[in-house]
């Protein structure tokens, strides 16, 4: 029987909205809360790469930020390896790390300086950290002459690799990847994807990957959930999803076709609609 690494049970998260009315505020009917994650439940098995596929604004990043302990759920529970993310926050923090779409570093500092800071926060001794940082950066294909130069002088792809090194160096058993390849060049994208697979295969990590890159989800993930307007509309292996999306006119659907089939709209349309709803609220 497979062990559950993450159990998300009926979780709800909304933002904004106010019961108070002040003269300068918009009328109450225009200030309804925006539901970002709407009663989502899912289970991620240990050592699995689980993908969450959705348009921008579908709730993917909110889900990741909830699991990262950066948000507190309005309702529902999340446990990570049996630890509740609210009641056992510090234990949970030690188990996970995250790579977000923005590399998020002190840009004036070098990769080594940024990574020393990150590893010390996780209690890793300086001598060990210094040795591991150089080894991991080399493993990610970063030239040694870049190690001590400010990060602002590096390309976005390189910065994202340093972000992956930051997560890897703290030895997380759960790695949360929030669109880690968005905006990267094809070569960097492949490097990152290869590293994610190595993390799972060689280091026994469990990975939650959010993306709106259908090909990436198809290639990397053991199972995929499609998230639309904060709700999971379907979950299964990539082949199961494609199989379920088969129609007479589309006998061999791609993941993009599967997304359209389950959400009733293309990724571009979904993103456009989410954006319009965001502006309206």
């Amino acid at each position: 029987m497979k062990t559950d690494a993450v159990v998300v049970d009926d979780i709800l998260k909304s933002f904004g909205g106010s019961k108070l009315r002040f003269g300068w505020r918009k009328p109450a009917e225009q200030r309804k809360p925006v539901v970002a994650v709407d009663h989502v439940s899912l289970r991620i098995h240990k050592n699995e790469i689980y993908g969450v596929l959705g348009a921008n604004g579908s709730g993917k990043s909110t889900l990741i930020r909830l699991l990262s302990t950066l948000l507190v759920p309005d309702a529902g529970t999340v446990t990570i390896f049996g630890h509740d993310i609210v009641r056992e926050e510090r234990t949970v923090k030690r188990l996970l790390n995250r790579v977000s779409v923005e590399a998020s570093f002190f840009k004036k500092l070098s990769p080594v300086e940024n990574l020393m800071y990150a590893t010390r926060l996780y209690g890793i001794p300086g001598v060990q950290a210094r040795r591991d940082i150089r080894r991991v950066l080399e493993m990610l294909g970063i030239a040694p002459d870049r190690f001590d130069r400010p990060l602002e002088q590096m390309s976005r792809g390189m910065q994202q690799k340093v972000a992956i090194a930051r997560a890897f160096l703290t030895a997380p058993v759960l790695l949360l990847l929030d669109e880690p390849t968005t905006g990267l060049d094809p070569r960097s994208k492949l490097d990152v994807q290869d590293f994610v697979l190595r993390l799972r295969n060689d280091h026994d990590a469990t990975v939650l990957l959010t993306t709106h890159d259908m090909g990436e989800a198809d290639a990397l993930c053991d199972r995929i959930a499609i998230l639309d307007r904060g709700r999971i509309v379907v979950e299964g292996t990539p082949s199961e999803l494609r199989m379920q999306a088969r129609t007479a006119t589309q006998p061999d659907p791609s993941m993009e076709d599967a997304f359209m089939y389950f959400t009733g709209r293309s990724l571009e349309d979904a993103e456009q609609e989410e954006q319009e709803e965001k502006v309206a609220s």
Partner: peptide, 27 residues
């Protein structure tokens, strides 16, 4: 599953030093 570097006084001291070293590097 093992927790790497479980909470201890030493890990808190190292973490505290992280801010000192970071701020010195930024300076």
């Amino acid at each position: 599953m093992t927790i790497v570097n479980p909470p201890s006084v030493m890990t808190e001291v190292r973490a505290s030093y992280a801010f000192v070293e970071r701020n010195w590097n930024l300076t």
